[in-house]
Design a binder for these strands. Sequence first.
RNA 1: UGCGGGAUAGAGCAGUGGCAGCUCGUCAGGCUCAUAACCUGAAGGUCGUAGGUUCGAAUCCUACUCCCGCUACCA
Length: 597
Amino acid sequence: MSTLPENILVCLAWPYANGDLHVGHIAGCYLPADIFARFQRLRGNRVVVVSGSDSHGTPIVVRADKENKTPREVFEYFHERFLQTWQTLGISYDLYTHTDTESHHALAQQMFRRLQQNGYLYQAKQKQMYSPAQDKFLPDRLVEGTCPYCSYDKARGDQCDSCGKLLDGTQLINPRSRANPADKLEVRESEHFMFDLPKLKDRVMAYLGDKDERWRSTVTEFSRAYARDIEPRAFTRDLTWGIPIPVPDSEGKAIYVWWEAVLGYLTATVEWAQVDGKPEAWKDFWYGDGAQGAVKIYNFIGKDNILFHTVLWQSILIGMENLDAPWDAGAAEERTLNLPYDVPANQYLNFGGQKFSKSLGVSLEALDLATKYGADPLRFYLASIMPETKDADWNWTDFITYNNSVLLAKWGNLIQRTLSQIWKNFDQKIPQPGELTSADHALLERAEAAFESIGAKLDACHFRDALNEVIELTTEANVYLDREAPWKTIKNEELGGRARAGTQLFVAAKVIDALTVLWSPWTPNLCDAARKLLGHTQPLFGSLYVQHVDEATRGHNVLRYDASNAAGRWAPSHLQPGQPLGAEPKGLVAKIEATGE
RNA sequence: UGCGGGAUAGAGCAGUGGCAGCUCGUCAGGCUCAUAACCUGAAGGUCGUAGGUUCGAAUCCUACUCCCGCUACCA
């Protein structure tokens, strides 16, 4: 076993700021990452969670044109929506920023220069569609024309919707601009920078070579197959809405959004360190083993992102070695950046054919659902069906059922039935236990052992497996109550009377106390509420807040995590007899009624 | 067309060579502390199709079918 604390950097995929987040995004990436981060914080590790909104790229420009707005207005709107979504769902970022900050721009250009200096960028000409009217190159998506294969006359430059063939904009017959069909397009050559990935292939393959034990096979197989036959990829695009490349006389050339978006993991860590008042702290995660012990970098993503996070991002990190100012002005010696330790990629959550929105009158937008039903029911259901090995489906009936029959009926009810007896019959205080029976010991030992076994599963990113064990222990506590029946014991001196009932309820309360920690990565709000009832005064976790960061020419809002009050520990219960309950227990979990229309 | 993943009880899923499991739902029973919540038991599957390897296959091999992702400036 490694020694604690470890430096754990949790990187979440950067959501594209051109539309709201739906439950599929949450289940695939953000929720598992948050469960993991909360668990690691409870364990006492030094955890930093970073991500941000991806603000560049064509779709944002398209949407902006359509709505008569600037790209910046579009992405800033969705960035604010994302900040709300994270706060409502409790996705606990140490820093959630975006890619249009001055510092990200500067560091992305530094990445470009460093890759160039290290010999990994070269120039090549590419044919692309050019609009004389707009005086710019058009993205293939925005070009329309007749498909050379099936003659469909509204084929897009990237793909024909009729026959499904993948196309190149220059292949279209009678190409025209989708925005302005009168515009006569020409094929022109454009000079671009290419990332010489084959040069880095051996080092990437070596990196992928020893990942079998930890990584999911869906991730390793796919990545190796791709890396084996890797080819150069374009590093620049003809786009004004992006980060300009640091090359003289290259107007209109931007860094292809993918490369600078993944770089965000690094630049956001740098920004986190600055905002946190410890500008050098990012090095503890990106260089060597860090000042305070081993470093592990995790990248949580969806399956569509695998190659970018297992091959291409690694190529950048390796290719950027020996970074200099402004990253690391004082570094004299050669330095290499740390590569991801694990890339737990999930499959997709789909909505296959469900008539969800009609029956309940809501969409599957994550912010709406969390606002309407609360974060915990949504987190719990999504975690229950989390697509770890294959695609899953959102189902309204199941959502309601999972909430009502597991979260409420098993877990909420366990708290309610136990604490209400203590409240009524034991002076609102945790009872003093007498001698423990073998059944008492068995359950208490089980609750203690759960920290080790569930912890191991969480540490290995086996979230569903871990959750099942938490539910199992919750059921065992319910079984214990049913067998022991303190409500009978207290009325029957032959069974031990009030003293024995007090012991039974003490055992149950102690297991509940442990369960509030074991459940907390999934349902943090419910668990903190339960702990208040038990009489605890400090919360398990810290809280999220928005902070405004000013730079030279513009400012931006970031989400941060304040851990100063967090008192949770991933450790067995220390609940003491005599501790007064915090309040009269009543309905911690709300029942969700099916509208039945 | 290539590369990768998936197909197991009504639904959602676990199970990588040794009697087919879990949660929910259904049916029956118990309990009455608890938000009609809790607990026990039962019914329900020829493990996508067809072959093969093996004493033995959901699990390994071959072919096929369907679904998903990548091969796109949709991150």
